[in-house]
């Protein structure tokens, strides 16, 4: 099993090395006046802001009037030479964290970010505790002995009977 994972990770590593060797080609739309760097920043920023009047969509994807206004503000700020974080901060100060499409990683909202990580760490531990650790002894044929099953059934039946009596 270990060997398998070793080979697996080796292949993936080798493969990603292959990938990095290939220079990603860049395809750029021609009509826009913005430089390529500015356009990337614009797409990043507009993709991180929510369209205030629609749901689920970013400012980048939406055609709502409000979104178009925000797009213009973002473009202006890029022209002024502001960085991505500065522009996002500007919008957060103006509209509150609500305008960002993912919650800021501070205050109470950090719970939303920690929870999935906790799942990844605690999940396997929980499964191990609930399932693997409680595995019972089995015979060679992986079937429990008849006496053991009989005993357990008897216990269960007694429990049910006593419950019924109480009820």
């Amino acid at each position: 099993m270990k060997a398998v994972f070793f080979y697996l990770s080796l292949t993936i590593m080798g493969f990603s090395a292959l990938v990095f060797a290939e220079e990603p080609k860049v395809e750029m739309p021609e009509t826009s006046e913005m430089s390529f760097e500015d356009q990337t920043i614009f797409k990043d920023v507009a993709g991180m802001l929510r369209c205030p009047t629609c749901t689920g969509l970013s400012v980048l994807d939406s055609d709502a009037k409000f979104s178009l206004q925000i797009q213009n503000v973002v473009k202006e700020q890029i022209d002024q030479g502001k960085s991505k974080d500065q522009i996002l901060d500007f919008f957060e100060n103006r509209y509150g964290p609500w305008i960002l499409r993912e919650p800021p990683k501070k205050g109470f909202n950090i719970v939303a970010w920690i929870f999935p990580l906790l799942l990844i760490i605690l999940g396997p531990i929980l499964v191990w505790m609930l399932v693997w650790r409680r595995s019972r002894d089995t015979s060679e044929n992986t079937v429990r002995s008849a006496e053991e099953i009989a005993e357990e059934f008897e216990r269960a039946v007694k429990l049910t009977l006593s419950n019924n009596e109480r009820a």
Partner: peptide
């Protein structure tokens, strides 16, 4: 108010 959308 906060939003949780696609990026999250």
């Amino acid at each position: 108010r906060i939003s949780i959308q696609a990026p999250y």
